[in-house]
Design a binder for these strands. Structure first.
Lengths: 301, 301
DNA sequence: CTACGTTGTGCTCAGCCCGAGAAGAACAGC
DNA sequence: GCTGTTCTTCTCGGGCTGAGCACAACGTAG
């Protein structure tokens, strides 16, 4: 239930005393934040938006953009959209719909291990955002340290776990690890795991949802769409079969009747343009090429 | 990120003052709870575990079992397992593994709208639990009001939203609505939506994960497994095709070499017994019979 | 004990989808 | 103009799917 009531059936008016009486620790030391895994496609490869931390712990490391939930003011979805706008400079002050309308935002999961932040118990609700190729977020207010990073440059191994518990940031050597810049590829807190979960989710969702169109502008071509699938899945797809399957799914794409102005960069005919249809689920699904890899864990719910 | 740091770069020691300086409202009035959607199969139909609320708001209504996250002491997963044990009497005091080992627990989603609890801003992390047919939870400590309810008896329409905002419980008529008992089929807070999301998740997960075995005892038969799918999907399946497909998925089930002692209740031969295999994902998947229903929303991530 | 209905298990068959390959046409760069 | 690239469509063989059926094993009614 949203708030328990068995042990202390006090009246509904005195929330704070009643809460504190139930469990004093449930009152003070929990913070709720919202973190965003924002993904986009740049130059044909998947990029994620990261900020550089300016204070310990994990000073100098990259982290997912995020911040506190404003209690009583906003829902989690609204907080995620606000954080994404604030920390990136995208969608500056115009109404939340102009720039953000082509942005897909969905909840990814919640991470609440007590030791994930060495300062206090922080419960983070992670969100996943897909966007078309967006400008660099240097123009924002507190977005000076935000930038797009290729996900292939990041270290997503389960190394982000043991560090948050013990010594904060200098177990790694203080920036001397043979790469450029301080902690260039390591993510703060458990953000490596959050990002890995987000990537698993995206890869799975492309199979049965039309979400790939969220990475593209309003009008796109079938080869554009195929490039999204190839970048996210990191696999080459058969152009002919992909074309056939996309057009055979009802409601996935709708033809605009037009074609591109020019052919491809290295030749080829002009492609027909499409825009996203009204389907929410793909029937039949676009399944990944069968890989005999036995298993990753509980991926993609 | 887990805790933001751009605006107030104070030292890492004074967390509380620094937090309060950033946004005083982010300090006090947010509570974090964990709610559990516990599902099981009883007499061939899907049941969910509910408790009866003994205090306002929504006094007398049913609600999902849950409670506060103990700050600094436990992770979200541990809190969900603890709440399920406490409020049901299952897994009394023996180590968390004896009774719970055959229980599947996974995170469902987080619900944090400011008005979902009229008392204060409560962020609830919902979990989904599958269990074999368990005894009635009357023996527990504060589990007196907990009981299994058929999900078909519950009202899952989007009516649970508007009530939490305005008058708490009497907009509905104060128990006079032609049903037996006070608010027999209505769920408190936004728990109807949480349960609906959980049901969507289960229905989708049976397609590509071996999770159906979590509803069954260690040894089971293929018709037992088929009964799980038919109950969750609420559809009759072709026995021969189901048999063929289950055995064709590597790692889904493993034969024990034995058969049942007796035939079916209304005749029929004895069935071979199996136990769950080591597969985490089903390849190929057991897809639902194609329903031409155009859409539900963003279901089953 | 016999007859009958029920059910587990396996088989066949037609239809559809999938992967692979290739062909034709349109286009950029040289 | 020539060449290489790419979009789009087509064909073909294999595998999976849904539907139906066959047979045997079993409980129950009589």
């Amino acid at each position: 239930m949203a708030a328990d009531d068995q042990p202390a059936p006090t009246g509904p008016g005195a929330e704070q005393e009643w809460l504190a009486a139930y469990d004093p620790r449930a009152y003070a030391p929990i913070a709720v934040t919202v973190d965003v895994v924002a993904l986009t496609l740049r130059h044909g490869s998947l990029h994620v938006l990261l900020v550089e931390r300016g204070a310990p712990p994990y000073q100098g490391c990259r982290a997912l953009p995020g911040g506190f939930l404003r209690a009583g003011e906003e829902s989690l979805d609204e907080a995620a959209a606000r954080e994404l706008a604030e920390e990136t400079g995208l969608l500056s002050a115009s109404g939340a719909g102009a720039t953000l309308c082509r942005l897909h935002l969905e909840q990814l999961g919640t991470y609440g291990a007590p030791e994930r932040d060495p300062r206090m118990h922080v419960v983070s609700v992670a969100y996943l955002a897909f966007a078309p190729d967006l400008p660099d977020p240097q123009a924002g207010t507190d977005a000076a340290a935000a930038a797009w990073h290729p996900v292939s440059d990041l270290d997503l191994r389960p190394c982000g776990r043991s560090r948050a518990a013990g010594a904060p940031a200098d177990t790694h050597g203080g920036g001397v690890d043979g790469r450029t810049g301080p902690c260039p590829l390591t993510l703060a807190f458990d953000h490596a795991r959050i990002l890995a979960d987000g990537l698993d989710r995206v890869r799975a969702k492309l199979e049965y949802s039309p979400l790939a169109t969220a990475f593209l502008p309003h009008d796109f071509t079938i080869p554009d769409l195929r490039a999204v699938y190839e970048a996210v899945w990191d696999e080459k797809l058969h152009p002919g079969n992909f074309h056939r399957k996309v057009l055979s799914v009802p409601g996935f794409v709708e033809s605009t009747g037009a074609t591109t102005e020019r052919g491809g960069a290295r030749g080829g005919p002009r492609a027909r343009t499409y825009h996203a249809g009204d389907a929410r689920l793909l029937h039949p699904a676009l399944l990944r090429p069968t890989r005999d890899d036995p298993a990753d864990g509980t991926a993609a719910p």
